[in-house]
Amino acid sequence: MNSELKAKAELFRSLHVPGRPLLLANAWDAASARVAERAGAAAVATTSSGVSWTLGTADGDHVDRGLALELTARVAAAVSVPVSADIEGGYAADPEGVARTVRGVLATGAVGINIEDSHDGGPAPLRAVDDQAARIAAARRAADEEGVPLFVHARTDTYLRGAGDLGETLERAAGYLAAGADGVFVPGVGDPAVVAALAEGIDAPVGILAGPGAPPVSVLASAGAARVSLGSAVAEAAYALVDRAARELLATGTYASVAGGIPWGELNALMLREG
């Protein structure tokens, strides 16, 4: 099993190429993962928001770790491409807990993680660099002990939460890489000049969060991005369709909102296929 995981992890790592970024339309269940794979995705990443919502709770370290890992296992079993799990802050209060989470992630068949430095309910919006570095180091050790080169994508929310500038972001990135991270994810950045500065200043693949209003992939690629994710945007769009369809049905008794869906037979056949 570990040899298969190792090979898949090495493949996933190889997909992070500055200027030719890995593109991720983030999934939140087995069906969304399989649809993304069918579209040609080279890998699948979960979105913690979508995972939390589909499990009946809010994003932001509210979801039960066991439930999140069970869902990740279903996603990994549904596709043949590498899977990366968004584990928020690690689903744990301390580094050892993060290590337990990472061992659980590997047991699901996933070969990458996102781990963020946001600290909901903490004394500051972000964890201190040393604190977050210790959590990343624990994740790295846990994966190394399992013999799997897990891709640790260290997310820093300096821009997303207005908690730091370029200098702070580069300082955090350096600390996280020294602790064992393999890449750095900086959501909240859309300016190609800032993306270029991040790619220049971070000695590792840089991930960018995209969506409506963001520059196209070609521009982000030219700026040096190695990974472009849609994050929660796909799940948000899916739930927006539910909202539109329900409102239309209740207000006018019509059904135009649900036109254009994947036909039942097509989607059902896709899910009948063995993972």
Rank of each mutant, 00 (worst) to 15 (best):
A246T: 14
E4W: 06
A107N: 12
E116F: 01
Y91S: 02
A73Y: 08
S222M: 05
G213H: 14
G253F: 04
A133E: 06
A124V: 00
A139T: 02
T169R: 11
A204P: 15
A223D: 13
G213Y: 13
Y91Q: 01
A233F: 14
S218A: 15
A163M: 08
S257D: 15
L249C: 07
A93L: 03
A45M: 10
M1L: 06
V217C: 07
A78T: 02
I208R: 01
A39S: 08
T47N: 09
N2V: 15
R65S: 11
V184E: 07
A134M: 00
V81C: 12
P95C: 01
G167Y: 02
I136S: 03
S52T: 08
D203P: 04
L5A: 10
T47P: 13
L22P: 12
V258C: 10
H153W: 00
D64Q: 13
L209F: 11
E200H: 14
M1R: 14
R161D: 06
V79K: 01
I208Q: 06
D120M: 08
G265Q: 03
L209C: 13
P82T: 07
A68R: 10
V148A: 03
T169I: 07
G261A: 12
L22Y: 03
I115G: 03
E171L: 12
V195E: 02
S218Y: 10
L5I: 07
A173Y: 04
G89N: 06
D131C: 07
A174C: 04
A133D: 04
A251W: 01
D157P: 11
A223T: 05
A138M: 02
A31G: 01
N2K: 14
N26A: 10
R135A: 03
A181L: 01
A133Q: 04
A30T: 06
S52N: 13
E4L: 08
W28P: 13
W264Y: 15
A163N: 11
R74N: 06
A199L: 02
G60T: 04
S32Q: 04
E145N: 09
R65H: 07
G97W: 13
S84T: 11
D131R: 08
S232D: 10
V186Y: 02
I208K: 07
E10M: 11
E168A: 14
G104V: 00
L15E: 06
T46F: 09
P215N: 14
V194S: 03
A245E: 09
T47C: 13
E171N: 09
L55R: 12
A235C: 15
G97M: 04
D130R: 14
V79A: 03
T54D: 11
R141D: 00
A240Q: 09
A124N: 05
E37L: 08
A251M: 01
A238R: 14
S3F: 04
I136V: 07
P149C: 08
G19T: 13
V79T: 05
N268R: 00
E88C: 07
A124H: 04
S232Y: 14
A179C: 04
T46H: 07
T108Y: 09
Y159R: 05
D86V: 14
A138F: 00
G19E: 10
R244H: 11
G260Q: 03
L241P: 08
N114R: 08
V234Q: 15
R20T: 10
L106D: 13
Y176T: 03
L55W: 05
T158L: 05
V83A: 03
A128G: 15
G207Y: 02
L220V: 06
D157H: 02
G265T: 08
M271V: 01
S49P: 04
